[in-house]
Nucleic acid binder design. Structure first.
Lengths: 204, 204
DNA sequence: AATTGTGAATTGATTCACAGCT
DNA sequence: AGCTGTGAATCAATTCACAATT
Protein backbone atom coordinates (compact mmCIF):
# COMPACT_ATOMS: atom_id res chain seq x y z
CA UNK A 1 0.00 0.00 0.00
CA UNK A 2 1.56 3.27 -1.07
CA UNK A 3 0.80 5.11 2.13
CA UNK A 4 3.98 7.00 1.64
CA UNK A 5 3.95 9.87 -0.88
CA UNK A 6 0.30 10.65 -0.42
CA UNK A 7 0.22 14.20 0.93
CA UNK A 8 -0.66 14.30 4.57
CA UNK A 9 -3.02 17.16 3.87
CA UNK A 10 -4.99 14.92 1.54
CA UNK A 11 -5.56 12.55 4.42
CA UNK A 12 -6.80 15.42 6.54
CA UNK A 13 -9.17 16.45 3.83
CA UNK A 14 -10.49 12.92 3.54
CA UNK A 15 -11.78 13.27 7.10
CA UNK A 16 -13.49 16.51 6.19
CA UNK A 17 -15.10 14.95 3.13
CA UNK A 18 -16.22 12.10 5.31
CA UNK A 19 -17.98 14.45 7.66
CA UNK A 20 -19.72 16.23 4.81
CA UNK A 21 -20.82 12.91 3.39
CA UNK A 22 -22.29 12.08 6.78
CA UNK A 23 -24.49 15.13 6.58
CA UNK A 24 -25.62 14.28 3.07
CA UNK A 25 -26.43 10.80 4.25
CA UNK A 26 -28.61 12.13 7.04
CA UNK A 27 -30.51 14.09 4.45
CA UNK A 28 -30.92 10.99 2.29
CA UNK A 29 -28.94 12.44 -0.57
CA UNK A 30 -27.50 9.55 -2.50
CA UNK A 31 -25.42 11.16 -5.20
CA UNK A 32 -23.08 14.12 -5.05
CA UNK A 33 -20.81 15.81 -7.57
CA UNK A 34 -17.23 16.75 -6.85
CA UNK A 35 -18.29 20.33 -7.19
CA UNK A 36 -20.98 20.16 -4.52
CA UNK A 37 -18.93 18.10 -2.09
CA UNK A 38 -15.88 20.27 -2.55
CA UNK A 39 -17.90 23.34 -1.83
CA UNK A 40 -19.19 21.86 1.41
CA UNK A 41 -15.65 20.96 2.41
CA UNK A 42 -14.24 24.34 1.50
CA UNK A 43 -11.90 23.13 -1.26
CA UNK A 44 -11.73 23.19 -5.06
CA UNK A 45 -13.39 20.36 -7.02
CA UNK A 46 -10.14 19.36 -8.69
CA UNK A 47 -8.47 19.00 -5.37
CA UNK A 48 -11.18 16.72 -4.12
CA UNK A 49 -10.88 14.57 -7.21
CA UNK A 50 -7.10 14.47 -6.93
CA UNK A 51 -7.35 13.47 -3.28
CA UNK A 52 -9.66 10.61 -4.11
CA UNK A 53 -7.56 9.57 -7.07
CA UNK A 54 -4.76 8.53 -4.74
CA UNK A 55 -6.92 5.63 -3.66
CA UNK A 56 -8.82 4.63 -6.74
CA UNK A 57 -11.83 5.52 -8.83
CA UNK A 58 -15.07 5.83 -6.95
CA UNK A 59 -17.20 8.07 -9.09
CA UNK A 60 -19.34 7.70 -12.16
CA UNK A 61 -18.51 10.05 -15.02
CA UNK A 62 -21.37 12.23 -15.99
CA UNK A 63 -23.05 11.55 -12.67
CA UNK A 64 -20.95 12.03 -9.58
CA UNK A 65 -20.28 9.96 -6.49
CA UNK A 66 -22.60 7.65 -4.65
CA UNK A 67 -22.67 9.01 -1.12
CA UNK A 68 -22.72 5.64 0.63
CA UNK A 69 -20.04 4.08 -1.51
CA UNK A 70 -17.72 7.03 -1.15
CA UNK A 71 -18.28 7.28 2.56
CA UNK A 72 -17.57 3.62 3.10
CA UNK A 73 -14.49 3.81 0.96
CA UNK A 74 -13.10 6.71 2.93
CA UNK A 75 -13.79 4.89 6.18
CA UNK A 76 -11.82 1.99 4.88
CA UNK A 77 -8.94 4.13 3.71
CA UNK A 78 -8.76 5.93 7.03
CA UNK A 79 -8.84 2.58 8.76
CA UNK A 80 -11.53 3.29 11.27
CA UNK A 81 -14.26 0.85 10.49
CA UNK A 82 -13.92 -0.80 13.83
CA UNK A 83 -13.72 1.08 17.13
CA UNK A 84 -10.15 2.09 17.83
CA UNK A 85 -9.11 2.14 21.50
CA UNK A 86 -7.31 5.25 22.74
CA UNK A 87 -5.82 6.20 26.08
CA UNK A 88 -5.67 9.68 27.50
CA UNK A 89 -2.73 10.74 29.64
CA UNK A 90 -2.90 13.78 31.91
CA UNK A 91 -6.26 14.45 33.52
CA UNK A 92 -5.91 18.16 34.20
CA UNK A 93 -8.27 20.82 32.90
CA UNK A 94 -7.87 20.03 29.29
CA UNK A 95 -7.57 16.30 29.79
CA UNK A 96 -10.77 15.97 31.75
CA UNK A 97 -12.63 18.13 29.25
CA UNK A 98 -11.45 15.87 26.48
CA UNK A 99 -12.70 12.88 28.46
CA UNK A 100 -16.12 14.40 28.75
CA UNK A 101 -16.13 15.47 25.13
CA UNK A 102 -18.18 12.81 23.41
CA UNK A 103 -17.19 13.62 19.84
CA UNK A 104 -14.59 10.90 19.49
CA UNK A 105 -16.84 7.93 19.86
CA UNK A 106 -19.03 8.94 16.99
CA UNK A 107 -15.97 9.03 14.78
CA UNK A 108 -14.83 5.57 15.75
CA UNK A 109 -12.58 6.13 18.74
CA UNK A 110 -13.07 4.96 22.28
CA UNK A 111 -11.14 6.35 25.18
CA UNK A 112 -10.65 3.18 27.19
CA UNK A 113 -8.64 4.55 30.10
CA UNK A 114 -7.09 7.71 31.44
CA UNK A 115 -3.86 8.10 33.38
CA UNK A 116 -2.54 10.71 35.76
CA UNK A 117 0.24 11.04 38.32
CA UNK A 118 -2.37 11.27 41.02
CA UNK A 119 -5.46 9.40 39.93
CA UNK A 120 -8.05 11.31 41.92
CA UNK A 121 -11.52 9.95 41.46
CA UNK A 122 -13.72 11.69 38.92
CA UNK A 123 -16.95 9.94 39.84
CA UNK A 124 -19.04 11.30 36.98
CA UNK A 125 -16.87 9.65 34.39
CA UNK A 126 -17.44 6.15 33.09
CA UNK A 127 -13.75 5.73 32.36
CA UNK A 128 -11.28 4.55 34.98
CA UNK A 129 -8.53 7.01 35.91
CA UNK A 130 -5.43 5.06 36.73
CA UNK A 131 -2.03 5.84 38.10
CA UNK A 132 0.52 6.52 35.44
CA UNK A 133 2.62 3.70 36.80
CA UNK A 134 0.02 1.27 35.47
CA UNK A 135 0.20 2.70 31.97
CA UNK A 136 2.79 0.41 30.47
CA UNK A 137 0.94 -2.74 31.47
CA UNK A 138 -2.36 -1.38 30.30
CA UNK A 139 -1.05 -0.45 26.87
CA UNK A 140 0.51 -3.85 26.42
CA UNK A 141 -2.39 -5.89 27.74
CA UNK A 142 -4.98 -4.02 25.71
CA UNK A 143 -2.88 -3.55 22.60
CA UNK A 144 -3.58 0.16 22.57
CA UNK A 145 -1.90 1.99 19.71
CA UNK A 146 -3.15 5.54 20.11
CA UNK A 147 -2.76 8.07 22.90
CA UNK A 148 -3.94 11.57 23.66
CA UNK A 149 -1.31 13.49 25.61
CA UNK A 150 -2.48 16.33 27.83
CA UNK A 151 0.26 16.61 30.43
CA UNK A 152 2.31 19.74 31.21
CA UNK A 153 5.27 20.48 28.95
CA UNK A 154 7.71 19.43 31.64
CA UNK A 155 6.40 15.86 31.66
CA UNK A 156 5.62 15.47 27.98
CA UNK A 157 8.81 13.90 26.70
CA UNK A 158 9.21 11.51 29.61
CA UNK A 159 5.65 10.27 29.36
CA UNK A 160 5.99 9.96 25.61
CA UNK A 161 9.08 7.82 25.90
CA UNK A 162 7.25 5.55 28.28
CA UNK A 163 4.23 5.24 26.01
CA UNK A 164 6.30 4.57 22.93
CA UNK A 165 8.30 1.99 24.81
CA UNK A 166 5.05 0.25 25.70
CA UNK A 167 3.85 0.15 22.13
CA UNK A 168 1.99 3.37 21.36
CA UNK A 169 2.29 4.25 17.68
CA UNK A 170 0.35 7.49 17.39
CA UNK A 171 0.12 10.46 19.73
CA UNK A 172 -2.23 13.40 19.67
CA UNK A 173 -0.17 15.93 21.59
CA UNK A 174 -1.83 18.83 23.39
CA UNK A 175 1.22 19.73 25.44
CA UNK A 176 3.16 22.77 24.34
CA UNK A 177 6.32 20.93 23.45
CA UNK A 178 8.10 19.38 20.53
CA UNK A 179 8.16 15.62 20.99
CA UNK A 180 11.07 13.52 19.92
CA UNK A 181 9.88 10.09 18.80
CA UNK A 182 11.24 7.22 16.75
CA UNK A 183 10.57 6.95 13.03
CA UNK A 184 7.62 4.59 13.29
CA UNK A 185 5.62 6.78 15.67
CA UNK A 186 3.34 9.55 14.39
CA UNK A 187 2.64 12.71 16.35
CA UNK A 188 0.01 15.34 15.63
CA UNK A 189 0.33 18.38 17.82
CA UNK A 190 -2.39 20.80 18.77
CA UNK A 191 -0.81 23.79 20.41
CA UNK A 192 -3.43 26.23 21.57
CA UNK A 193 -1.11 29.13 22.28
CA UNK A 194 0.57 28.71 18.93
CA UNK A 195 -2.77 28.76 17.15
CA UNK A 196 -3.70 32.01 18.84
CA UNK A 197 -0.34 33.56 18.13
CA UNK A 198 -0.67 32.57 14.55
CA UNK A 199 -4.04 34.27 14.28
CA UNK A 200 -2.82 37.39 15.97
CA UNK A 201 -0.22 37.76 13.25
CA UNK A 202 -2.89 37.92 10.60
CA UNK A 203 -5.00 40.60 12.17
CA UNK A 204 -3.16 43.62 10.84
CA UNK B 1 4.71 45.02 5.34
CA UNK B 2 4.67 42.02 2.99
CA UNK B 3 2.53 39.88 5.23
CA UNK B 4 1.21 38.23 2.17
CA UNK B 5 3.44 35.62 0.49
CA UNK B 6 5.15 34.57 3.71
CA UNK B 7 4.22 30.92 4.17
CA UNK B 8 1.73 30.46 6.93
CA UNK B 9 3.75 27.55 8.20
CA UNK B 10 6.68 29.87 8.74
CA UNK B 11 4.53 31.94 11.03
CA UNK B 12 3.61 28.82 12.97
CA UNK B 13 7.23 27.92 13.33
CA UNK B 14 8.07 31.38 14.59
CA UNK B 15 5.86 30.65 17.58
CA UNK B 16 7.71 27.42 18.21
CA UNK B 17 11.07 29.14 17.98
CA UNK B 18 9.78 31.71 20.39
CA UNK B 19 8.92 29.08 22.93
CA UNK B 20 12.32 27.45 22.61
CA UNK B 21 13.98 30.82 23.05
CA UNK B 22 11.99 31.29 26.23
CA UNK B 23 13.50 28.12 27.64
CA UNK B 24 17.00 29.21 26.69
CA UNK B 25 16.35 32.55 28.36
CA UNK B 26 15.32 30.84 31.59
CA UNK B 27 18.61 29.02 31.52
CA UNK B 28 20.50 32.26 30.95
CA UNK B 29 21.80 31.17 27.59
CA UNK B 30 22.47 34.29 25.60
CA UNK B 31 23.59 33.04 22.21
CA UNK B 32 22.27 30.21 20.09
CA UNK B 33 23.14 28.87 16.65
CA UNK B 34 20.55 28.07 14.00
CA UNK B 35 21.59 24.47 14.37
CA UNK B 36 20.88 24.28 18.10
CA UNK B 37 17.64 26.23 17.94
CA UNK B 38 16.39 24.28 14.95
CA UNK B 39 17.07 21.05 16.75
CA UNK B 40 15.06 22.19 19.76
CA UNK B 41 12.20 23.19 17.47
CA UNK B 42 12.30 19.98 15.48
CA UNK B 43 13.21 21.54 12.11
CA UNK B 44 16.24 21.83 9.85
CA UNK B 45 18.68 24.71 10.41
CA UNK B 46 18.21 26.03 6.89
CA UNK B 47 14.51 26.20 7.38
CA UNK B 48 14.91 28.21 10.53
CA UNK B 49 17.21 30.62 8.76
CA UNK B 50 14.86 30.92 5.82
CA UNK B 51 11.94 31.59 8.14
CA UNK B 52 13.81 34.38 9.86
CA UNK B 53 15.05 35.78 6.58
CA UNK B 54 11.50 36.78 5.66
CA UNK B 55 11.69 39.44 8.32
CA UNK B 56 15.28 40.60 8.29
CA UNK B 57 18.74 39.69 9.50
CA UNK B 58 19.02 39.07 13.18
CA UNK B 59 22.07 36.89 13.56
CA UNK B 60 25.81 37.39 13.61
CA UNK B 61 27.78 35.29 11.14
CA UNK B 62 30.24 33.04 12.80
CA UNK B 63 28.43 33.39 16.08
CA UNK B 64 24.72 32.78 16.00
CA UNK B 65 21.72 34.62 17.37
CA UNK B 66 21.41 36.65 20.53
CA UNK B 67 18.59 34.98 22.42
CA UNK B 68 17.03 38.18 23.76
CA UNK B 69 17.24 40.06 20.51
CA UNK B 70 15.75 37.24 18.51
CA UNK B 71 13.01 36.63 21.02
CA UNK B 72 12.01 40.28 21.08
CA UNK B 73 12.07 40.45 17.33
CA UNK B 74 9.78 37.47 17.00
CA UNK B 75 7.41 38.96 19.56
CA UNK B 76 7.25 42.06 17.47
CA UNK B 77 6.69 40.20 14.24
CA UNK B 78 3.92 38.11 15.76
CA UNK B 79 2.39 41.29 17.11
CA UNK B 80 1.82 40.20 20.65
CA UNK B 81 3.85 42.55 22.74
CA UNK B 82 0.77 43.89 24.38
CA UNK B 83 -1.98 41.72 25.86
CA UNK B 84 -4.52 40.83 23.18
CA UNK B 85 -8.13 40.49 24.33
CA UNK B 86 -10.02 37.38 23.24
CA UNK B 87 -13.57 36.21 23.77
CA UNK B 88 -14.67 32.62 24.09
CA UNK B 89 -18.01 31.50 22.72
CA UNK B 90 -19.64 28.27 23.82
CA UNK B 91 -19.09 27.28 27.44
CA UNK B 92 -19.65 23.54 27.18
CA UNK B 93 -17.12 20.91 28.18
CA UNK B 94 -14.40 22.04 25.92
CA UNK B 95 -15.17 25.73 26.29
CA UNK B 96 -15.04 25.71 30.08
CA UNK B 97 -11.82 23.71 30.04
CA UNK B 98 -10.29 26.27 27.75
CA UNK B 99 -11.37 29.00 30.16
CA UNK B 100 -9.65 27.27 33.01
CA UNK B 101 -6.58 26.55 30.94
CA UNK B 102 -4.16 29.26 31.95
CA UNK B 103 -1.70 28.83 29.09
CA UNK B 104 -3.00 31.70 26.98
CA UNK B 105 -2.20 34.54 29.34
CA UNK B 106 1.45 33.67 29.48
CA UNK B 107 1.59 33.94 25.72
CA UNK B 108 -0.02 37.35 25.60
CA UNK B 109 -3.72 36.61 25.34
CA UNK B 110 -6.44 37.42 27.81
CA UNK B 111 -9.86 35.85 27.66
CA UNK B 112 -11.95 38.87 28.64
CA UNK B 113 -15.42 37.34 28.44
CA UNK B 114 -17.24 34.14 27.61
CA UNK B 115 -20.63 33.73 25.97
CA UNK B 116 -23.18 30.97 25.94
CA UNK B 117 -26.84 30.53 25.02
CA UNK B 118 -27.62 29.91 28.66
CA UNK B 119 -25.09 31.72 30.77
CA UNK B 120 -25.22 29.54 33.86
CA UNK B 121 -22.96 30.78 36.61
CA UNK B 122 -19.57 29.17 36.88
CA UNK B 123 -18.59 30.65 40.22
CA UNK B 124 -15.01 29.43 40.24
CA UNK B 125 -14.16 31.45 37.17
CA UNK B 126 -12.92 35.00 37.25
CA UNK B 127 -14.39 35.69 33.82
CA UNK B 128 -18.00 36.73 33.32
CA UNK B 129 -20.17 34.34 31.34
CA UNK B 130 -22.67 36.37 29.38
CA UNK B 131 -25.68 35.63 27.24
CA UNK B 132 -24.84 35.31 23.61
CA UNK B 133 -27.32 38.10 22.89
CA UNK B 134 -24.86 40.50 24.54
CA UNK B 135 -21.99 39.43 22.34
CA UNK B 136 -22.29 41.98 19.56
CA UNK B 137 -22.27 44.92 21.95
CA UNK B 138 -19.39 43.53 23.92
CA UNK B 139 -17.23 43.00 20.86
CA UNK B 140 -17.87 46.48 19.62
CA UNK B 141 -17.46 48.24 22.94
CA UNK B 142 -14.25 46.43 23.80
CA UNK B 143 -12.81 46.37 20.30
CA UNK B 144 -12.22 42.64 20.52
CA UNK B 145 -10.68 41.17 17.38
CA UNK B 146 -10.14 37.55 18.33
CA UNK B 147 -12.56 34.79 19.29
CA UNK B 148 -12.34 31.18 20.36
CA UNK B 149 -15.31 29.22 19.08
CA UNK B 150 -16.36 26.13 21.01
CA UNK B 151 -20.04 25.73 20.13
CA UNK B 152 -21.65 22.65 18.56
CA UNK B 153 -21.41 22.29 14.80
CA UNK B 154 -25.04 23.19 14.36
CA UNK B 155 -24.52 26.67 15.79
CA UNK B 156 -21.04 27.37 14.44
CA UNK B 157 -21.85 29.22 11.24
CA UNK B 158 -24.59 31.34 12.75
CA UNK B 159 -22.47 32.43 15.68
CA UNK B 160 -19.56 33.10 13.35
CA UNK B 161 -21.63 35.36 11.15
CA UNK B 162 -22.70 37.29 14.19
CA UNK B 163 -19.14 37.65 15.48
CA UNK B 164 -17.79 38.72 12.13
CA UNK B 165 -20.58 41.22 11.73
CA UNK B 166 -19.61 42.69 15.09
CA UNK B 167 -15.98 43.07 14.12
CA UNK B 168 -14.15 39.84 14.94
CA UNK B 169 -11.22 39.33 12.59
CA UNK B 170 -9.74 36.04 13.74
CA UNK B 171 -11.40 32.85 14.93
CA UNK B 172 -9.89 29.82 16.57
CA UNK B 173 -12.50 27.23 15.68
CA UNK B 174 -12.93 24.10 17.76
CA UNK B 175 -16.28 23.15 16.29
CA UNK B 176 -16.28 20.32 13.77
CA UNK B 177 -17.41 22.40 10.83
CA UNK B 178 -16.06 24.30 7.90
CA UNK B 179 -16.65 28.00 8.47
CA UNK B 180 -17.49 30.33 5.66
CA UNK B 181 -16.06 33.79 6.36
CA UNK B 182 -15.28 36.92 4.36
CA UNK B 183 -11.83 37.49 2.90
CA UNK B 184 -10.52 39.67 5.71
CA UNK B 185 -11.28 37.17 8.48
CA UNK B 186 -8.81 34.42 9.41
CA UNK B 187 -9.88 31.07 10.77
CA UNK B 188 -7.69 28.39 12.31
CA UNK B 189 -9.52 25.18 12.96
CA UNK B 190 -8.69 22.55 15.50
CA UNK B 191 -10.76 19.50 14.81
CA UNK B 192 -10.14 16.82 17.39
CA UNK B 193 -11.86 14.01 15.58
CA UNK B 194 -10.04 14.83 12.37
CA UNK B 195 -6.72 14.77 14.16
CA UNK B 196 -7.43 11.34 15.57
CA UNK B 197 -8.64 10.02 12.24
CA UNK B 198 -5.52 11.32 10.63
CA UNK B 199 -3.36 9.50 13.14
CA UNK B 200 -5.27 6.30 12.75
CA UNK B 201 -4.44 6.31 9.06
CA UNK B 202 -0.75 6.27 9.80
CA UNK B 203 -0.76 3.33 12.17
CA UNK B 204 -0.55 0.52 9.69
C1' DA C 1 36.82 28.83 11.97
C1' DA C 2 32.33 29.16 12.48
C1' DT C 3 27.92 30.32 11.21
C1' DT C 4 24.61 33.31 8.92
C1' DG C 5 21.99 34.73 4.72
C1' DT C 6 20.42 33.65 0.22
C1' DG C 7 20.05 32.49 -4.93
C1' DA C 8 19.48 28.19 -7.29
C1' DA C 9 17.81 23.55 -7.32
C1' DT C 10 14.70 20.41 -5.77
C1' DT C 11 10.81 18.53 -4.00
C1' DG C 12 5.95 18.75 -3.10
C1' DA C 13 1.09 20.36 -3.67
C1' DT C 14 -2.38 22.56 -6.32
C1' DT C 15 -4.65 23.84 -10.37
C1' DC C 16 -5.47 23.51 -15.28
C1' DA C 17 -7.14 21.53 -19.31
C1' DC C 18 -8.97 18.11 -21.52
C1' DA C 19 -9.49 13.11 -22.71
C1' DG C 20 -12.51 9.38 -21.43
C1' DC C 21 -16.93 7.42 -19.66
C1' DT C 22 -21.76 6.96 -18.85
C1' DA D 1 -24.31 16.68 -22.00
C1' DG D 2 -22.25 16.23 -17.84
C1' DC D 3 -18.89 15.01 -14.72
C1' DT D 4 -14.93 12.17 -13.42
C1' DG D 5 -9.99 11.00 -13.73
C1' DT D 6 -5.41 12.41 -14.76
C1' DG D 7 -1.04 14.00 -17.18
C1' DA D 8 1.01 18.42 -17.72
C1' DA D 9 1.73 22.99 -15.98
C1' DT D 10 1.96 26.03 -12.37
C1' DC D 11 2.68 27.54 -7.91
C1' DA D 12 4.66 27.02 -3.21
C1' DA D 13 7.85 25.28 0.25
C1' DT D 14 12.01 23.12 1.44
C1' DT D 15 16.67 22.03 1.03
C1' DC D 16 21.19 22.66 -0.95
C1' DA D 17 25.43 24.82 -1.61
C1' DC D 18 28.20 28.39 -1.03
C1' DA D 19 29.42 33.32 -0.72
C1' DA D 20 29.56 36.83 2.87
C1' DT D 21 30.72 38.22 7.44
C1' DT D 22 32.50 38.28 12.06
Amino acid sequence: MPRIDIPRKSIYRLSIYQRCLGKLRENDVDTVSSEALAKAAGVKPTQLRKDLAYFGQFGTRGLGYNVDVLSNTISEVLGHNRLQPVILVGVGNLGSALLRYGGFRKEGFEVVAAFDVNPKRQPDLAIPILAITEMTDFIQQNQVKMAILAVPASAAQIVTNQMVEAGIQAVLNFSPSVLDVPEHVVVNSVDLAVELENLSYFIR
